[in-house]
């Protein structure tokens, strides 16, 4: 069935509504004005890129965000996969409860998770550090891996594991040659999502970060300074580049492997 003109127009309008602000952010990274944004911009320059790249606080924030996201994702990969395997393969007391508890951090408002973590960190007198941020992020990153892995486990025929063992493979070999390759695309998708969630997280980070600034918090802080405003646009430009390229590659890769299934 062909879409009517009205439907097409509405679809384009919705897409434009979603994406025009993005283009505005990218466009004003080249603006010559340093405080106020006018349209059309009086001139274009690459100068702000140089300014941003020379600022150590930008590099510190970007580095911290990348490290936190990588470590939180790694933790989520291990814990999420193990939790999914346990919930899928065995029946034990409190299995449903564990499933629910794992999902809770992403269902609860970030502000609740944030306050809860802050109180616990205070209660146990743990100093705020890189690791408190990582733990905060891991709480909601585990879910994304867990959900993806569990869904894939449920689609997997139970006899695959038995077949592997029947053909002489021990548990480790079965995991290495059968389970892991079967889970791979699901884990990749879960990890991408976990990374993206962690990378732009603001609320939980605010409560768990102490004095350190992750990139989103640094950017937010920049908005309150009237000088050098296009620096945030340049940062946004870099963030978009960092996040979309791997997502695009992952998308290409997973869509190619899943059409075989």
């Amino acid at each position: 069935m062909r879409a009517s003109f009205g439907l097409k127009a509405a679809a384009f309008a919705a897409l434009a509504f979603l994406h025009i602000p993005l283009f505005i952010v990218l466009f004003y990274a080249f603006n010559v004005e340093e405080a106020a944004f006018t349209f059309p911009p009086p001139g274009l320059t690459l100068n702000w890129f140089a300014v941003t790249l020379q600022r150590p606080d930008f590099w510190r924030a970007l580095g911290l965000s990348l490290q936190v996201a990588i470590v939180a994702t790694a933790i989520a990969l291990v814990l999420g996969t193990l939790a999914a395997a346990a919930v899928y393969r065995t029946r034990f007391f409190g299995r449903e409860t564990i499933s629910l508890l794992l999902l809770l951090p992403i269902a609860l408002p970030g502000i609740v998770t944030g306050i809860a973590l802050r109180s616990s960190i205070g209660l146990f007198e743990i100093p705020f550090s890189f690791w408190t941020i990582v733990i905060g992020h891991a709480t909601f990153c585990v879910v994304t891996v867990y959900n993806n892995a569990l869904a894939r486990f449920r689609r997997m025929s139970k006899s695959l594991v038995e077949a592997s063992m029947d053909l002489g493979a021990n548990s480790f070999q079965t995991f290495r040659y059968v389970i892991l390759p079967e889970l791979a695309t699901a884990l990749l998708a879960g990890a991408m999502l976990a990374f993206a969630l962690s990378f732009d997280e603001v609320i939980v980070t605010t409560f768990t970060a102490g004095q350190q600034q992750t990139l989103p918090i640094w950017m937010f802080a920049q908005l309150t300074r009237p000088r050098q405003r296009p620096v945030t646009n340049v940062a946004a430009f870099i963030v978009i580049a960092i996040t979309t390229i791997p997502i695009y590659l992952a998308y290409r890769w997973t869509s190619r492997t899943t059409d075989v299934h």
Partner: peptide, 16 residues
Amino acid sequence: PYERDVNTVFQDYALF
């Protein structure tokens, strides 16, 4: 199973 000299053809084939 991996210490037994038998092999199985599964009902759902269980191909990888």
